[in-house]
Amino acid sequence: MDRLEIKKIVEELREEQLVEGDILIYLLHRVQDHYQSHYIPPEIGEMVAEELNVSPSKVYEVLTFYSMFATKPRGKYIIRVCTSLPCHVPGGREIVEFLKKKLDVDFGDTTKDGLFTLEETSCLGLCGVSPVIMINDDYYGDLTVEKVESIIENLKGGEAR
């Protein structure tokens, strides 16, 4: 991503701006969507700060406060596992254990091949089909350990091809 692209997005978002300053988080979402490894490099964060005329420290604070943003590269697939009680109760606990073992990582870590990052998330509001995980923008529900395994294998298989 370069400055021109950022300028373009800023211009687009200004259309939806009601008050100066209300588009920073929105913009960061859009910028991060550009990166396959789901993060915002420091120099890009600085460019965003300059374009919106805010201090880089403010951008950095926002990037590190919210769990959906990252300042370091993450895996191609971010697996967000709901660890809240409505998922924990009908089998979510086993899924968390399985994923940690299967991927050989803890929450917040990325697999060695750079494919998966495992993250925990709070309730995703899909408790009608819990346990639930999210992989990038897609939801998966009514999960069992077997289903999770096949989802992971499918993604891996897609990469190998």
Partner: peptide, 20 residues
């Protein structure tokens, strides 16, 4: 952007203003 505490009304307002 993934923060439960933003459901608290004043934290939510901070977030709209582009802050943590």
């Amino acid at each position: 952007a993934g923060a439960y505490v933003c459901g608290e009304e004043t934290a939510l307002l901070e977030s709209i203003e582009g802050k943590s």
